[in-house]
Amino acid sequence: MRVLVVDDEPIVLKSCRLVLEAEGWEVVSAASVEEALSLLESITPDLLLIDVKMPVHDGMYLMRQVKERKPGIPIIVMSGYPTRETISKAEDLGAAIFLPKPFTPDELADTLRSVAIIKSQDE
């Protein structure tokens, strides 16, 4: 299973890579929305884990692009500012689940696992 993690914060990228690779995920990371979009031209991940607040284009923009280009990939939205508005907006745009930062390795792993199970059930 391959997951594309998008966050402008290197520590978050490194943390996710550490936790998820330990769980057996193939982790591809992108430090910006632009980088993620160019990566998505060559690869198709099973899951997307994206941050909301990023420079230039934000996670919401990326979600719209993904829904257009590669619909069907479940998206997990994570944010350090989990307001009700942000959560409902993410859900409106088709986020599978909202993951508030900070999270423990278990919380992260459990979230991805549950989304993956739902996806496999859908298929």
Binding site: E9, I11, S15, L18, G80, K101, P102, F103, P105
Partner: peptide, 13 residues
């Protein structure tokens, strides 16, 4: 919250 994610992750790992 971002650095806290790092702290939590590495401590637990």
């Amino acid at each position: 919250n971002n650095p806290l994610t790092g702290v939590l992750t590495y401590t637990h790992m």
